[in-house]
Amino acid sequence: MPKVGMKAIRQAQLISATLTVIDRVGLAEASLSAIAKQAGVSTGIVSHYFGDKNGLLDACMRQILLDLYLAVERQRRAADNTPEAQIRAIIDGNFDLTQVAAPLLKTWLVFWTNSLHQENLQRLQRINDRRLWSNITAQFARVLPHEQARAAGGSIAALIDGLWLRMTLAQKPMTDGLEQARSLCYQNLALWLATAR
C-alpha cells in the first residue's frame, strides 16, 4: 500500500531531478534513466507517474508556469491598486529571484523550443503568453484607449520575453541583469503611461 502523500512527493522530486538533468546535459540527453538516477528512484517510478519523457516535460512546465503565476500574484498583492503599480508588480514577478535559478532557465528555453513541435507544450505556451499580455493590457485599459492598451500590453510582454531570452543566453548569471531588465521595462511602462496624461 503506497504511503499517503507519496505521489506528490515523488512527482516534486522527479520534476526537480528533471530540471537538474536538463541543466546539466540538455533535453536530448536527459533520458528517463538519467532523471531516475538523479532522483534516486527506478525508471519504472518515472514511467508510473508521468508515462514517458514528454509527460514528465509537460509536468515540469506546468510546475514552472504555476511557480511563475504565484510569483506574479505575490508581487501584485503587495502592490498598490494603480495601473502603474500593478504593471510594475507583473514585471517584478517575471524577474523574481525565484524565477532565475540556473536549471529553470535552461528548461524555459527547452520549453520554448519544443512548444514549436509539441501540441501540449504549445498550448501551455499560448496560455502563458495570453496570461502575461492580458494581465498587462487590463491594467493599461484603466488609463488608455482600448487599442492603445492592447499595443502597450503587447510591447511590455514582448520586452519581458526578449529580456528573458537575452539574459538566459548570456554568459554571466541572470541575476546580474535583473535590475537592468526591470529598469528597461519600467522605462517602457513610463513612456506608455505618459501618453495617457
Rank of each mutant, 00 (worst) to 15 (best):
T113N: 09
V25T: 09
S47F: 06
S33R: 14
D67R: 10
G55A: 08
R150M: 12
D67W: 02
D58A: 14
L163G: 03
G55T: 02
P103N: 12
G93A: 05
L169C: 06
R126Y: 12
I35C: 08
A17W: 06
F111R: 01
R123M: 08
L178M: 12
R142P: 03
S115A: 07
A181S: 06
N81E: 11
L27P: 04
R130G: 06
I9W: 10
A12C: 13
S42T: 08
A170L: 01
A89F: 00
N54D: 14
L165E: 09
F140Y: 08
E29H: 13
D58E: 11
T20F: 06
L66G: 12
N120T: 09
N128D: 15
V41T: 07
L32R: 07
W164N: 15
A71T: 05
S47R: 11
L189N: 01
R197C: 09
V41Y: 03
I64L: 09
L27M: 10
H117L: 13
V72P: 01
T43W: 08
L189V: 00
L169E: 12
G55R: 04
Q171Y: 08
F50T: 01
A196Y: 01
E147N: 08
R76Y: 02
Q187S: 15
A170Q: 13
D58F: 14
K7N: 10
P145S: 00
I160T: 00
A151G: 09
G154F: 00
D92N: 15
I87L: 10
A89E: 01
K37I: 02
S16K: 15
S42G: 10
L65V: 11
T137C: 01
P83I: 01
D52L: 11
Y49I: 06
K37G: 03
L27I: 13
L178A: 11
L66M: 13
L70K: 13
H117E: 13
T168Y: 09
L104S: 07
